[in-house]
Design a protein around this nucleic acid. Sequence first.
DNA 1: ACCTGAACACCGTTCAAGT
DNA 2: ACCTGAACACCGTTCAAGT
Lengths: 209, 209
Amino acid sequence: MNAAVDLLDEHGSRGLTFKLLTERLQTGAGAVYWHVANKDELVTMATDQVIGTALERLSPEPGTSPEARIRALALSVYDTLDQHTWAAPHVVAVHTMPHTMRLLERIGGMIAETRLPVRRRFAVATAIFIYLTSVTAQDAGRAVAAGPDSTRDDMLRHEAQQWAALDPETFPFVTRIAEDLGHHDDRDQFLTGLDLILDGLRAQVGDLP
Amino acid sequence: MNAAVDLLDEHGSRGLTFKLLTERLQTGAGAVYWHVANKDELVTMATDQVIGTALERLSPEPGTSPEARIRALALSVYDTLDQHTWAAPHVVAVHTMPHTMRLLERIGGMIAETRLPVRRRFAVATAIFIYLTSVTAQDAGRAVAAGPDSTRDDMLRHEAQQWAALDPETFPFVTRIAEDLGHHDDRDQFLTGLDLILDGLRAQVGDLP
DNA sequence: ACCTGAACACCGTTCAAGT
DNA sequence: ACCTGAACACCGTTCAAGT
């Protein structure tokens, strides 16, 4: 399984083949199939393992507000998945896997410390959980699409140029913000959305220290 | 291209093969490759076309607040992508495609009607755009994972049982909300997160009529 | 300019046989 | 119980040849 994570880091989920895996493990294909049902399950298990490392690396930080700790937790997961860009798109299928359950449990625990009404806890905790996993997946997916050959900046510059080249009459907004895209950071962007959600949460709870 | 969308609806992006496509179009593989570079590009173009239909089906609804119109737009896209579950995961790669640009333009235009400071418009508009596309992608991805054989309810029930079966000591939150998962609706869930974001937006703008 | 379709390289999965 | 590795079915992509 660790070998699978390594190979996925090197080649991505598409680039991982049973040939590569059996070569590295010095075994036959059947050996792998004795432990997993198919390639999907293999990648899913590897993905859950990555989620596990994100939880491990997090320091407790007691004393701070639940919202701040949710923020820190979300960032830790974001950064970890950013290092394993192949993993994020598979978090979808992983809702029932052990480490991913631990992640939801942590978020829920923090929400429970809030003065949010009990009946709203499920909805808000899963909303944050879903925001976290799915936006991370999208950002990581874009990083994969960019490829290791072209740098992220090159790609953003290229995209910004395409935006700027659009017709300003039909695309007044997009053409005007095209240059903002140039110095855009996915991580900041992720935080902006997360903070909007946390602001919404505070608004529902009533903001007191 | 329309044939591609139909086949994708029938078989999903994995199930779409050049064999199926050339049979339906009564041509050879080379004919398809004359128009697209590879399968990825084919699916990307089909995905953008789906986004286009989501924008088409939307009625203008003038007079309502920008936030309410963003909500309606987001729901339209959500529902359309929900009917083409194969598409959502590919919206990532599509940020530069024509209809997807129109979507961002629309959101941005509505944000511009808000009293949000100009320098924050880019960040907030893309935050909403990213929330919309990526959460939709996750929900749709889960629908694909469930498969057409087992119903959604069966799957949720099964997942809820797994949650309930966890150790209540280490998973106090998850086990307690397990039953909420039973009558859970992805669409409501999507709205909960969206409303949190819109609440956050209103909090930043100052809520006036 | 656009299409044909056979050929190629490759990959996930299976399975009879081994230990 | 767990591993071996050859064999199978299939699929994306290419390309010389056609119109």
